[in-house]
């Protein structure tokens, strides 16, 4: 197992290298000069050259990339080109908890909603509850998340005036309740795709589990339907869903980008958007790397959970690794 983890962590290196080279190239071939953020009309050419050198913007693109890489390997993601040169790492760490809070809430919400829906749909296969749930899961995978966000804002903020439309806190109000009120709509929007995917998955897993012989045995022994569902079927359904959650991790990273910009949530997505608009390349590189890292580590955690949860996989790992 340790071997597997080590292998996965080693795979990180080429991925991060390739993505960093790729993003670096795109940013550097972009029209516009990040130096423009700093240039004042009264600057001499000399001052501008010094500034360029200080920002690490002189030299060929290879030099610049190697310089960046060298800094990163020494734990320095560089300084933001805006915000009076605050270190990128600090800025990211400042907003990262907000994004993780949003993602975590959304993941929990997805499970809380999809597990009962999936079980009901599987149990009532092809009856009306199943059809209704399946219709809504189609909607869930098809709805553009940003539009769902807009609709929620219209309904709950503009018409009913019960939920705040943007931000993470009302100014001057740091209570938990206020945070939760701000969290409801963004996390719901971020969950909608996952709820639909998980529900469909749990439904089909429930259907196939209910056909298993152990269910028949349990029934014969007089276990109630509730007992069968929650003690046997649910356990076996959750395994694949854990992996699925890992695979859907990218949708959380991507989704938070969109959701944050709809709701003005001060997280990685908002930071990323402003960095892209300002050609703030150390910041772009920083959050691109971090998003990759989040994604791969998310997958790895899902793998590990799966491994911990299913003894069959544990033996399977050894066979495959052989």
């Amino acid at each position: 197992m340790a071997k597997h983890i080590a292998k996965r962590l080693l795979q990180l290196i080429p991925v991060l290298l390739l993505v960093s080279i790729f993003s670096f190239l795109i940013i550097h071939f972009a029209p516009g000069d990040p130096l423009n953020m700093y240039v004042r009309p009264d600057m001499t050419q000399e001052e501008m050259d010094t500034l360029r050198a200080n920002l690490g913007l002189d030299g060929t693109i290879v030099d610049q990339y190697l310089g960046w890489l060298n800094n990163v390997l020494h734990g320095n993601l560089g300084n933001s080109l805006t915000n009076s040169g605050q270190p990128v790492a600090d800025r990211i760490l400042e907003v990262l908890p907000n994004t993780i809070l949003l993602m975590g809430t959304s993941l929990v919400l997805s499970f809380v909603i999809s597990i009962p829906l999936g079980l009901i749909a599987g149990l009532k296969k092809n009856q009306w509850p199943d059809q209704v749930i399946s219709f809504f899961s189609y909607i869930g995978i098809s709805i553009p998340s940003f539009w769902f966000g807009l609709i929620l804002i219209i309904v709950f903020s503009l018409v009913l005036k019960v939920l705040p439309s943007s931000g993470i806190h009302t100014i001057g109000d740091d209570s938990l309740l206020d945070l939760i009120r701000h969290l409801i709509m963004p996390s719901l929007v971020l969950s909608v795709g996952n709820v639909a995917t998980f529900t469909r998955y749990i439904r089909s897993a429930t259907i196939s589990q209910l056909e298993e012989e152990y269910v028949l045995t349990a029934k014969a022994k007089g276990v109630s339907q509730r007992g069968i569902l929650f003690h046997h079927v649910l356990k076996n359904c959750l395994l694949p869903v854990i992996t699925l959650a890992g695979m859907r991790f990218s949708s959380l990273v991507t989704g938070s980008f969109i959701v944050e910009s709809v709701f003005g949530w001060p997280g990685m997505g908002t930071l990323g958007m402003s960095a892209i608009n300002n050609l703030n390349y150390p910041m772009i590189m920083g959050f691109t790397m971090l998003s990759c890292l989040l994604l791969i580590v998310g997958n790895l955690i899902a793998d590990l959970l799966y491994y911990v949860a299913d003894p069959r996989i544990r033996s399977g790992f050894q066979e495959v690794q052989g």
Binding site: V15, V19, P31, S250
Partner: peptide, 21 residues
């Protein structure tokens, strides 16, 4: 393919689109 799949593709699409216009 694994590499491309383990990358936040939407983010890269955004970056390309933002700069290539």
């Amino acid at each position: 393919l694994d590499i491309v799949m383990s990358v936040p593709t939407f983010l890269l699409i955004i970056i390309i689109n933002a700069y290539v216009k």
